[in-house]
Design a protein around this nucleic acid. Structure first.
Lengths: 225, 225
DNA sequence: TTATAAAGTTAGATTAATCTAACAAATTTG
DNA sequence: CAAATTTGTTAGATTAATCTAACTTTATAA
């Protein structure tokens, strides 16, 4: 069983690998705010547990087992964030710190219940995908609403930025995550768009707003569900 | 800030004090499943943090600060148990282990939200009181329904035993925590009772059931709310 | 009331996670 | 390509939480 500290190292390695490919010790150390020798000795001990492939002076990689474990922690983190926001009415800005703690709770059931209560979400509110139980990251296929062509139906799934004001604005227009939007027209002039959705047959959104709304173009598969 | 380990020592001391008065080192050690020297050195370090009064060979006591901290951890534990059962639909038997972990989460808001969502409960499902934010234990005034006289109005607040079968039985009769019951009559013969409550003007409950239902006799104050 | 048992203490070792100082390897660059 | 810089490693120390072994104090009881 990994300690919370070890779990943080695995998480950092997973995130670095998914954004940079090659992982160096110093990147790991600076990400975790520890000294190089500390990271070095921890990496050796993670190797002993078969979670990390380590050779002197070589870049670091996670083993298959390490990836699975890391993904499960990130899954717990992102589920927690969503749970705090949607079930417990936290603000987006407040959730990270708490989620950093709750992600280390050992209880499959606790997180499966969160998952159920949230309706098995595929991504967190910032558009970062939530790994499945198999540790696989569904590749995110979000695009900003601003890049969608007129006539298309899309699902609003995430926000690229979620300040309190922006959220209030969305509330005032009846916009919430999960909603299906149909693009009616776009305006070359200022990149504003007119869209329709539940109870809103014609709503104009500024270009700035459209860039911040992350959507998924509906496929046959996603529409069927 | 107390580590999770220190918090467990404080919690054990609080619980022992509330059930035994005098606390000896060996009681503490055996409660926490650690050796005497381990408990001894931890107690010294808790003394340094001003949470425990310690003198060689003397019984242990918590300082005022220590009591407050211990009560806050127990509060978090019991709120978590209730939250897991009522919001996340865990079974009573499953919650303890998870609550032992979650009680160490540092986030006042997280637990205040639980408290709100649960309607500021005064006791956990086993009738153990939940300390308030001030660390005070409201003295529990629960009595088994079986000891209530006919004509009295009571509030169902806890269960002395909560097996799955018992809970199913309660569900089948529309009985849930928080409900107000009026005792219509009691039967000398088998200690069964007839009570009325929402949508159930006349329900007979066996003596066994009545012993397991913990209720609070309504006062003017509690009824007003 | 002294001998034995129980409870508490001290000393010293271990493991995990961290650090600084000193050194070595690899990489960058003049 | 050799010098300088960056990166990685080793050695050795520290703190928290734990242990066993040995010893002391307090309590029990013959």
């Amino acid at each position: 069983m990994a300690s919370p500290t070890e779990e943080n190292y695995l998480k950092a390695l997973f995130n670095l690998a998914n954004s940079q490919g090659e992982i160096t010790l110093s990147e790991l150390a600076s990400r975790l705010q520890v000294s190089l020798p500390t990271a070095n000795s921890m990496v050796k001990s993670l190797q002993k547990s078969q979670w990390v492939n380590y050779e002197k002076y070589k870049p670091l990689t996670l083993t298959a087992e390490g990836q699975l474990l890391a993904a499960s922690i990130i899954r717990k983190h992102r589920l927690t964030e969503l749970f705090l926001v949607h079930v417990m009415k936290f603000g987006w800005e407040e959730v990270h710190e708490v989620a950093e703690q709750i992600e280390h709770i050992h209880s499959p059931k606790f997180f499966e219940r969160m998952d159920e209560m949230l309706g098995h979400p595929a991504a967190d509110p910032h558009g970062s995908p939530i790994p499945g139980l198999d540790g696989k990251l569904q590749q995110q296929s979000y695009v900003p609403l601003s890049s969608v062509l007129p006539g298309q139906k899309v699902e609003l799934l995430a926000l690229s930025n979620s300040s309190a004001e922006f959220l209030e604005f969305l509330n005032s227009r009846g916009l919430s995550l999960g909603l299906t939007l149909t693009v009616i027209s776009t305006e070359r002039f200022d990149h504003s768009m007119v869209v329709s959705y539940t109870d809103h047959p014609r709503e104009a959104l500024s270009g700035k707003v459209c860039e911040r709304l992350l959507v998924c173009v509906q496929t046959a598969a996603s529409a069927a569900h």
